[in-house]
Simulated assay, not measured.
Amino acid sequence: MVIELEYSSSLNGASYLLFELKQVVKLQQKGLSTQEIRNIVVDENVFQFENKGRITRTLPSVMRRAKVIDSTLASLLTEGSVEVGKVINLYAIMKTDLLFYEFMNEVISEKLQNSDYLIEKKDINLFFTAKSEQSDKVASWSIINTEKLKRAFLQVLFESGMLKDRRGKELNRLIIDEQIKNHLIHIGDTRYLRAMGE
């Protein structure tokens, strides 16, 4: 299933959300409809958020990610190790967020291919400058929105294990489970593996 993506800054309010994605995928595995899942998540506070408003902000992103995870990846996500879950979540974020995918593909993957394990502020700034020159939509975002988005990108890198520490600049290579690798190749999603540095 190909989803035509547009640039979006939705990662601002919904950066990593691995726990939340697992909860939604578990409900999907029970055969519940999108609406039933939404109702359960909100009524039972499945995400365990203190603030109900945060559920309504993050749920659309989590639902989008859950939709791109097929039954094989769903089983690996819910039954596999935390490391396996992190890789699948990173894949789902890239698959549903065009700007983040391009960042991974054009900045992170390139650095890893060149054995350059430092991600610096200028790398992120150059990426966003280039995108705002290519896209009126990105150019229209406020400076505050763009700065928040840069932080959200780094947060995803950190939580997925690609950034060694939250405030640091040093990149890690992900160890991608063979089952995930083989499955993504099988379903024609090799470009996401490449974007993760494979």
Results as ranks from 00 to 15, higher is better:
residue 123 D to G: 02
residue 121 K to R: 14
residue 134 Q to F: 02
residue 82 V to C: 09
residue 128 F to L: 14
residue 116 D to M: 08
residue 80 G to H: 03
residue 61 S to T: 12
residue 81 S to E: 12
residue 87 V to W: 07
residue 89 N to A: 02
residue 114 N to S: 14
residue 81 S to H: 09
residue 152 A to D: 02
residue 64 R to Y: 10
residue 55 I to K: 01
residue 126 L to K: 14
residue 94 M to W: 01
residue 124 I to P: 01
residue 63 M to T: 01
residue 98 L to H: 08
residue 156 V to L: 09
residue 61 S to R: 12
residue 71 S to Y: 09
residue 88 I to E: 05
residue 123 D to T: 03
residue 75 S to Y: 12
residue 104 M to L: 14
residue 59 L to Y: 07
residue 135 S to C: 06
residue 152 A to L: 07
residue 126 L to T: 14
residue 90 L to M: 10
residue 159 E to Y: 11
residue 105 N to I: 09
residue 150 K to Y: 08
residue 151 R to M: 11
residue 118 L to R: 14
residue 71 S to A: 10
residue 122 K to N: 12
residue 69 I to V: 11
residue 159 E to K: 14
residue 108 I to W: 10
residue 62 V to R: 04
residue 65 R to Y: 00
residue 92 A to M: 06
residue 96 T to P: 00
residue 133 E to A: 10
residue 87 V to I: 13
residue 93 I to W: 02
residue 93 I to P: 00
residue 134 Q to C: 07
residue 62 V to L: 08
residue 72 T to L: 10
residue 69 I to G: 00
residue 75 S to P: 00
residue 143 I to H: 15
residue 102 E to K: 14
residue 90 L to N: 04
residue 109 S to W: 09
residue 128 F to R: 03
residue 111 K to W: 10
residue 84 V to Q: 12
residue 62 V to K: 05
residue 133 E to R: 14
residue 68 V to D: 05
residue 129 T to C: 09
residue 81 S to Y: 07
residue 88 I to P: 03
residue 124 I to V: 13
residue 92 A to D: 04
residue 55 I to L: 04
residue 127 F to E: 08
residue 137 K to Q: 10
residue 106 E to Y: 07
residue 61 S to K: 12
residue 59 L to F: 03
residue 150 K to G: 04
residue 88 I to K: 12
residue 70 D to P: 05
residue 159 E to S: 06
residue 110 E to Y: 10
residue 135 S to M: 03
residue 145 N to H: 09
residue 115 S to G: 05
residue 66 A to K: 03
residue 66 A to Y: 08
residue 138 V to S: 03
residue 94 M to R: 04
residue 112 L to A: 07
residue 144 I to G: 13
residue 65 R to V: 02
residue 80 G to V: 05
residue 142 S to W: 01
residue 75 S to I: 11
residue 119 I to C: 06
residue 145 N to W: 02
residue 109 S to I: 09
residue 100 F to S: 00
residue 91 Y to F: 15
residue 147 E to I: 11
residue 141 W to T: 07
residue 115 S to F: 13
residue 151 R to D: 11
residue 124 I to T: 07
residue 156 V to M: 06
residue 105 N to M: 11
residue 118 L to V: 12
residue 79 E to D: 14
residue 121 K to V: 11
residue 72 T to Q: 11
residue 149 L to Y: 02
residue 152 A to E: 02
residue 112 L to P: 06
residue 132 S to M: 12
residue 153 F to G: 01
residue 109 S to N: 11
residue 78 T to F: 04
residue 71 S to F: 08
residue 111 K to D: 09
residue 152 A to R: 02
residue 114 N to I: 06
residue 94 M to P: 02
residue 154 L to M: 14
residue 104 M to N: 03
residue 85 G to N: 04
residue 118 L to I: 14
residue 157 L to W: 00
residue 128 F to W: 07
residue 125 N to E: 14
residue 66 A to S: 13
residue 101 Y to V: 05
residue 111 K to H: 13
residue 90 L to K: 06
residue 63 M to F: 03
